Amino acid sequence: MRHTRRTIRAALTNTHALAAAACGRLGLLRFTLETARRVRIAYTNAAGESSVRDIEPRFVKPNKKTGRLYVHAYDNLRGESRNFTLDRIALEAA
Rank of each mutant, 00 (worst) to 15 (best):
S51K: 01
N63L: 14
P62S: 00
V60L: 15
K65M: 08
L26E: 06
Y74G: 15
S50C: 09
T15C: 10
L26K: 01
K61G: 00
R38M: 06
I89G: 09
R6I: 15
R53V: 02
T7Y: 11
L18Y: 13
M1I: 11
G24Q: 10
N83V: 09
G48M: 01
L26R: 13
L28Q: 07
L18D: 15
T13H: 02
A22M: 09
R53K: 03
C23G: 00
S50L: 07
A20K: 05
R5Y: 04
R30V: 02
S81M: 15
A93L: 06
A46Q: 14
G24L: 05
L77I: 03
A10D: 15
R53Q: 10
R5Q: 06
N63G: 12
R53C: 12
T66Q: 03
V52C: 04
R38G: 13
T35G: 12
F84W: 01
F59Q: 04
Y43N: 05
G27T: 00
P62A: 01
N45W: 00
L77S: 11
R58Q: 06
D87T: 03
R25Y: 07
T32M: 07
A21H: 14
L12M: 05
L86E: 13
T85P: 00
N83M: 12
L26Q: 02
R37M: 15
H3A: 07
I89A: 11
S81K: 01
A93P: 14
L12K: 10
L33E: 11
R5G: 09
D87C: 05
D75H: 04
A93T: 05
G79P: 03
H16M: 14
R82W: 04
R78S: 08
A46G: 00
E49R: 11
R5E: 06
T7F: 14
A47E: 12
L86G: 00
I89P: 09
T85G: 13
R25F: 03
R38N: 10
E34T: 08
T35A: 14
H3D: 06
E56W: 08
A47D: 12
T44P: 02
F84R: 01
T7Q: 08
V60H: 08
A47T: 04
Y43A: 03
L12R: 12
I55Q: 09
L91C: 11
I89E: 07
P57R: 04
G27Q: 01
L77M: 04
L26N: 12
S51W: 01
A36P: 02
I8S: 11
A11N: 10
R53Y: 00
D87M: 02
L29Y: 00
L33A: 02
T35R: 04
V60P: 05
P57D: 05
F31W: 03
R88M: 02
V71W: 03
L86S: 11
V39L: 06
A42H: 14
T44I: 06
L86M: 14
D75S: 02
V60T: 08
R58Y: 13
L91W: 08
G48S: 05
P57F: 00
G79K: 09
I55C: 07
R5F: 13
V71Q: 02
R82M: 06
N76D: 14
T44K: 01
L69V: 12
S50I: 12
C23R: 12
T7V: 12
